[in-house]
Design a protein around this nucleic acid. Structure first.
Length: 926
RNA sequence: GGGUGCUUAGCUCAGUUGGGAGAGCGUCGCCCUUACAAGGCGAAGGUCGCAGGUUCGAACCCCGCAGCACCCACCA
């Protein structure tokens, strides 16, 4: 784009893609220089995934941090990559197979895995392409995938080391079993949901025929596996029955009545059926009493009792049948409505069963101890700090982590068995064979464990496995520990805690210094965005725009519950009658940054994107203005130049802004950065300085040298603003920077490697700031009268300054030209206090009165009303001041500077009120 | 059952050593002013959830209550 051909309106599509390609191909994203290292490891998105609002938000934060530190001269690496996402990915490919009428078992393990790899190669790049659209400056040359050979190597190494230290073990235990996916799950992958059901009271006849006990259960079908009936040892009602046998109905098996503290005598009947194989508590009770668990389910949670009439029935069918059969035998005492928490698998949403199987576990407590200490000692810092408490609560109660999964896609557990069931854990089969030979004295046939590891096992190694661990690499030396982890609170347990445990275990260092925990993006109503609710916004649609029909189509296809389509369509049409306009990446990123507050819910409001798109347009046009007026600087930028008060003022403001932005950046308050820069660029630079520059450049009284100073200031301050904005809105700032370059002393190819503006105290001119504040106050006074009187903005007004002090007069003289132009003054006169003046509308600036004579343009009634309102407002303030000052305790106890401030304020208010009142009288007497 | 967070302008939200309540969007009024109408200028709008306490002074600190949201948990 030629520099004089900036289009009149900002068009993100015209600039974004080309700039990104140029950055990537010129290697801008790779670490450079010799500065202090700065590193962020991306939370690897699922390779199956496509970018959603949560990613876009999180990636904006990370990219802003990374770009900021790069500009600060740090040797910066944003490590990227994707996660193999075991169950999720397997499900995607299985669904494809199902559509072909096949299952994974038809293909067999190897062919199925090959099919997933094929899918990954063809479709796995979606999210990384989308990350590029977001402007994410990841070092793609270092991209990793959790199933890459080097990362798999890290996984095996970690497993073997933990096993050798007895921190991993294999055992038969009750685990959460997903009967649809046919795999064990960790506790975290089980979600408890409240559901309405019943509490069945069942009569269990005593074996001696002398009556029955009544047990209450929410799962009557599990009675087939009952091993005992338990009562509380102190429960007088049942004391004599302890030790007796009951005859389990329908089964005809005798089971004992036992006493155990676990039983709550006040719940139900105080009698509890014990089913050790299908309930976590009962399992514990069973262990205490030496009961043998009776497994009554198969892996699909159908009844597995050959010979029984219920054999082969689904658990819920069996429930109905069993209740009916018990009813027929008059063994149901009563059925109560009951609300209970039902455990469901987070992927399949199937009701999970406690199920007795052989699984692999990580002994978590030993690993948790140092991980707790690292946060306690401040080696790791949560931001906001509150989250450390959540972390501690979980870590202090941590349970062993079930890491084996009965699926095919993932890191296969590096354990081999001989035909006697001996286990050989090793880095590869050859080493397992060596172990086996040591035991057997000869080569034996081994087979590898069929299970794969929980995806989070490899994720937990991510910050160092991506840098080369277990090898010693330069990258590991340089960039580990990483600087900050940016993540949502939803995966503190899944991921953050486990990374800390593994990081400390394997590297001796915490994997990151800070954990910045951001909120979760929700829709405008605060609802979680989900396909089934039909309220999902695609970040790419906000960038590119989408027409209503396409949006409706997108939201209503592929629904799990197709009957929702109509409702979703209606709400979508209502909410987006014109579809979604294109806002561009920068506006979206700026919006996300503005939402990066300390809260946990982030409601996404489209209005804000539009506002920030407008801000982009504002910047664009400010740059156009600067370009149009600074041709004389092209290839001749000035190092030293004359400046006036306005130039020194805007430059002083720039210094303070740089300081504020740096402070906000250090504490991850991107919302404050946005706020600060938005206000500076729009209100101070555009609204005031640009307007002043116009006046100065058109002023025949100003020397050409001074005008060049104005031009250079226009360029320099805009350049600084662009650099400060760049981490948040990379594209537009780069595009404009490229235009501005020839007018600046720097000769860099990209704004990306420009220095970030720093606070320079010697650039601050307090006198210039005070002068300009005076100018602004006076101009605002005139504008207020104009606005309140509904005077045509084009109409030039005669203005009289009355009274005031020497400083007022000096300033009025110095800034006469600015005042006249900014206030659209026809004339400016100065009179002393007490001198006769025409009837006027009045504004006050300190001790000086600003008078706009009531001519034909001034509405006398309107002015009276305006004065009245003004007086009322001031009177209220004065009242508050006086109440304070009349309180002897306040005067006695408050700090002196506060009291003085209050007194000065009261004095000023009283003077102003007096002045306005006398003006009221004069206007009224007209 | 235990815990956490939130409640500030019509909407979405800032407001950290307690000392004159802010922004964006929306609304109203006047303007197509040669950077920008995706704009300019001006204005209106709040008993800071409720009720106490501490303090000279509370949106902010403490106690209680209410509503909302979320997390954890083995009462069948």
């Amino acid at each position: 784009m030629n520099e004089n051909e900036l289009s009149k309106t900002y068009d993100p599509h015209a600039i974004e893609q080309a700039l990104y390609d140029a950055w990537e191909s010129s290697g801008q994203f790779a670490p450079a220089g010799t500065g202090a290292p700065y590193c962020i490891a991306i939370p690897p998105p699922n390779v199956t995934g496509s970018l959603h609002m949560g990613h876009a938000f999180q990636d904006t934060i990370m990219d802003a941090l990374v770009r900021y530190h790069r500009m600060r001269g740090h040797r910066t690496l944003w490590q990227g990559g994707t996660d193999h996402a075991g169950i999720a990915t397997q499900m995607v490919v299985e669904r494809q197979l199902n559509a072909e009428g096949k299952t994974r078992h038809d293909l067999g393990r190897d062919a199925f895995i090959e099919r997933i790899w094929k899918w990954k190669r063809e479709s796995g790049g979606t999210i990384t392409r989308q990350l590029r659209r977001m402007g994410a400056s990841l070092d793609w040359s270092r991209e990793r995938f959790t199933m890459d050979e080097d990362l798999s190597h890290a996984v095996r190494e970690a497993f073997v080391r933990l096993y050798e230290e007895d921190l991993i073990y294999r055992g038969k235990r009750l685990v959460n079993w997903d009967p649809v996916l046919h795999t064990a799950l960790s506790d975290l992958e089980v979600l408890a949901e409240e559901e309405q059901s019943f509490l069945w009271h069942l009569r269990y006849p005593l074996a001696n025929g002398s009556g029955y006990v009544i047990v209450a259960t929410t799962r009557p079908e599990t009675m087939l596996g009952d091993a005992a009936v338990a009562v509380h040892p102190d429960d007088e009602r049942y004391r004599q029955l302890v030790g007796c046998q009951v005859m389990l109905p329908l089964v005809g098996r005798e089971i004992p009545i036992i006493a155990d503290d676990y039983v709550d005598p006040d719940f139900g009947t105080g009698c509890l059926k014990i089913t050790p194989a299908h309930d976590f508590n009962d399992y514990e009770v069973g262990n205490r009493h030496g009961l043998t668990p009776v497994n009554i389910l198969d892996p699909s949670a159908a009844i597995n009792l050959p010979g029984s009439p219920y054999h082969g029935m689904d658990r819920y069918d069996a429930r109905e049948r069993i209740v009916a059969d018990l009813k027929a035998l008059d063994l149901i005492e009563q059925i109560d409505d009951h609300t209970l928490m039902v455990p469901r698998g987070d992927r399949s949403h199937a009701v999970v069963e406690p199920y007795l199987t052989d699984q692999w576990f990580v002994r978590a407590q030993a690993l948790a101890e140092p991980a707790i200490k690292a946060v306690e000692d401040g080696d790791i810092r949560f931001v906001p700090a509150n989250w450390s408490r959540t972390y501690f609560d979980w870590m202090h109660n941590i349970q062993d982590w079930c890491i084996s999964r009965q699926i095919w896609w993932g890191h296969r557990i590096p354990a081999w068995y001989d035909d006697q069931g001996n286990i050989f854990v090793a880095r590869d089969e050859a080493q397992a064979q060596i172990q086996a030979q040591a035991l057997h004295g000869q080569v034996v046939s081994l087979y590898q464990d069929d299970d794969v590891l929980d995806t989070w096992f490899s994720s937990a190694l991510w910050p160092f496995s991506t840098l080369g661990w277990p090898d010693s690499t330069d990258e590991l030396d340089t960039f580990y520990p990483t600087s900050v982890l940016v993540t949502g609170f939803d995966i503190i347990f899944f991921w953050v805690a486990r990374m800390i445990m593994f990081g400390l275990k394997f590297t001796g260092s915490a994997p990151f210094r800070d954990v910045y925990v951001h909120g979760l993006v929700r829709d405008a109503d605060g609802q979680k965005m989900s396909k089934s609710k039909g309220n999902v916004l695609d970040p790419l649609d906000l960038i590119d725009g989408i027409a209503l029909p396409a949006l409706v189509e997108k939201r209503t296809t592929g629904l799990m519950q197709p009957q929702m389509a109509k409702h979703i369509e209606d709400t979508t049409r209502r909410q987006f009658p014109d579809g979604i306009p294109s806002f561009g990446t920068d506006a979206l990123r700026f919006t996300f940054a503005s939402l990066a507050t300390q809260g946990r819910d982030i409601r996404f409001d489209l209005g804000r994107v539009e506002g920030f798109r407008n801000f982009c347009n504002k910047l664009w046009n400010a740059a156009r203005f600067v370009m149009m007026n600074t041709d004389s600087l092209v290839d001749k930028p000035l190092a030293n130049f004359e400046t006036g008060t306005a130039e020194r003022w805007i430059n002083s403001r720039l210094q303070h802004i740089a300081q504020d932005v740096a402070t906000s950046m250090e504490v991850y308050r991107l919302d404050q950065v946005v706020q600060t820069l938005h206000a500076f660029a729009w209100d101070e630079y555009c609204s005031w300085y640009l307007e002043i520059a116009k006046i100065e450049l058109a002023d025949d009284g100003l020397s050409e040298a001074h005008k060049d100073g104005v031009r250079q200031t226009l360029v320099n301050v805009l350049g600084a603003a662009l650099r400060m904005l760049h981490p948040i809105m990379p594209f537009i700032t780069e595009a404009l920077w490229q235009q501005l370059r020839s007018r600046t002393l720097t000769n860099s190819d990209s704004i990306m490697n420009q220095p970030y503006p720093q606070f320079e105290p010697n650039q601050v001119d307090d006198k210039a700031v005070a002068d300009m504040e005076w100018v602004q106050a006076v101009v605002s006074g005139v504008r207020n009268i104009r606005g309140e009187m509904n005077i045509d903005p084009r109409k030039e007004l005669p203005v009289i300054f009355q009274g005031g002090n020497d400083l007022d007069r000096r300033r009025a003289r110095d800034f006469q030209t600015l005042l006249a132009a900014l206030g659209r003054l026809q004339s400016l006169a100065f009179v002393a206090d007490g001198e006769d003046t025409p009837q006027s509308a009045t504004a006050l600036s300190g001790e000086m009165k600003i008078l706009v004579p009531l001519g034909s343009v001034i509405d006398r009634t309107a002015e009276l009303k305006r004065l009245e309102r003004e007086v009322e407002k001031l009177a209220e303030d004065l009242q508050r001041c006086q109440t304070k000052l009349s309180n002897p305790n306040f005067v006695a106890r408050a700090p002196e500077n506060i009291v003085n401030k209050e007194q000065n304020r009261a004095d000023q208010l009283a003077r102003d009120i007096e002045e306005l009142k006398s003006q009221q009288t004069r206007v009224a007497s007209l």
